[in-house]
Amino acid sequence: MKRHVFNKPWEAYLFLLPWLVGLLSFTIIPIIMSLYFSFTRYDMANSPLWIGMGNYMTMYKDPRVWKSISVTFRYVLLGIPFQLSFALFLAVILKKQRAGVRIYRAVYYLPSLFGGSVAVALLWRQIFNKEGIINRLLSLLSIEGKNWIASPDTALYTLILLSIWQFGSSMVIFLGGLQQIPQDLYEAGSIDGAGKVRLFFTITLPLLTPMVFFNLIMTIINAFQAFTPSYIISGGTGSPVDSTLFYTLYLYINGFKQFKMGYASAMAWVLLVIIAAVTGVMFGIGKKWVYYDD
C-alpha cells in the first residue's frame, strides 16, 4: 500500500506543484521564520538580532500581555456559551418543516455572512454610542444610558454581544445534526409519556453532542483569534483603558505599529500554545460527554 504512493506517475507532482509552492512560500516558510524571529529582536528594517528567550521573558513581565490574555479569555468564556445556546435554540425552532422555513434559515444565517466585517463593527459603534439606538430606546423608558462602547466596564460586553450575533454557521451545523436524529426515537419517547422538554434533554441533546463538540472547538479557536471587532471599535488601540485589548490586537500593535516583529512572533507562538492546550483539554473532557453512535 505504501509503495503505491511513490509509484504514481511523476506528472502528478507536476500538477501538484502550484499548490506545493504556495504551501511552502506562504505557509511553511513563514511559520518557520516566525519561530526564528520569536527568538530575535527584529524591526523589519535591520537584520534580526538573536536574543534567545528574551521576548518570552519580556512577555512574562509585560502587564499588557496579561491584560490582553484576561480580556481574550473573558471574551471566549462569556461569548461562546451564549452563542452556541442561541444557535441551538434557533436550530430547534427552524428544524420543523413549516411554510417559509427556508427563508427564515437564510435570514438567520445572514448576520454570519457579514458579522465579522468592518462595516458591522462600525454599525456597532453607532448602536452603542452615547446617542445611539440603544440609548434612544432607553430614553423612552426615561433611563439615561451611558456610552457603552467608550466605558471601560461595558466595552467588552458590546463586543461579546457582537460575537453572539454571529451564530449562523453553528446553527447550520446544529440543523444538519438535528435532521439526522431518527424520528422513531421521538415517537418511542412520546409513547412512554415524555414531554417536549424531556424529549429534548434525553434524546435531542445527547445525540447532538458530536455537533456541540465540533461547534465548541471551532468557535473557541475562532474566538481566540478575533481581531476585527476590537480593532475597529477601539480605533486600533484596545481603548478604553485596554478593556478591549484582545491578544491578537496587542500582537498587531507590537508587530506593525511599534516595529517589534520579534516580540509579535513570540506572542503568536504563545497564542498557538494556548489554543492547542485549550483544544487538547476540550478533547480530553470531550471523551466523557460526547456520544458517538457507532
Binding site: 513563514p30 483569534q225 491578537t248 492547542a276
Partner: peptide, 9 residues
Amino acid sequence: MLSSIPALI
C-alpha cells in the same frame, strides 16, 4: 490554526 494567525492578521 497556526497558519491562520498571520493570515488572519
